[in-house]
Amino acid sequence: TTTITTTNEEDARRIATEWKNKGYTVHVEKRGTTFRIEVR
């Protein structure tokens, strides 16, 4: 599992989409101002 964190919502969406397009399972969680993107 790879975890990526960013405070930028646009980055979070872009990163999540990129990983999904590669065939990975992506889970995005917002904690306060931080977005945690888990890639499996």
Rank of each mutant, 00 (worst) to 15 (best):
E18T: 07
V26M: 01
T34C: 14
T6I: 07
R31C: 10
E18R: 08
T2I: 15
R36L: 15
E38K: 09
D11A: 10
R14H: 06
T3Q: 06
R31I: 15
A12C: 07
E29L: 10
V39N: 01
T2P: 06
K30M: 09
K30R: 11
D11N: 07
R31V: 15
T33H: 12
A12K: 01
I4Q: 04
T2D: 05
K22E: 04
R36I: 15
I4L: 09
E10W: 10
F35W: 15
E10Q: 10
R14N: 06
R14I: 06
T17A: 13
W19G: 01
V28S: 03
H27V: 13
R36Q: 11
R40T: 14
R13N: 12
A12W: 04
A12L: 03
R40G: 08
I15H: 03
I4D: 01
Y24F: 11
F35G: 00
I15N: 01
T7Y: 12
T6E: 04
R13D: 08
A16C: 09
H27L: 12
T3G: 04
K22W: 06
G32W: 03
E18S: 08
E10S: 09
K20M: 14
F35T: 03
K22Y: 05
E10G: 07
V28F: 06
T25Y: 12
K22S: 05
T3C: 13
I4P: 01
K20E: 12
W19H: 03
E10L: 10
V39C: 06
G32S: 04
N21D: 10
K30V: 10
V39G: 02
V26D: 00
R40A: 09
F35I: 07
T25N: 10
K30H: 07
R40L: 12
V39I: 15
T3E: 07
R14E: 05
E29F: 13
E18F: 15
K20H: 09
T3P: 04
R31Y: 13
V39M: 05
I37R: 00
V28D: 00
T34R: 08
N8F: 06
D11L: 11
E9G: 07
T2Y: 15
W19Y: 11
T5L: 14
T25V: 12
I15S: 02
F35S: 01
V26I: 05
E38W: 13
V26G: 00
V28L: 07
T1H: 12
T17D: 12
H27N: 10
A16K: 03
G32T: 03
E18K: 08
T7G: 08
E29R: 10
E29G: 05
T6V: 14
T6A: 12
A12P: 00
I37M: 02
D11Y: 11
K20A: 13
N21S: 11
R13Q: 11
G32M: 04
T25H: 13
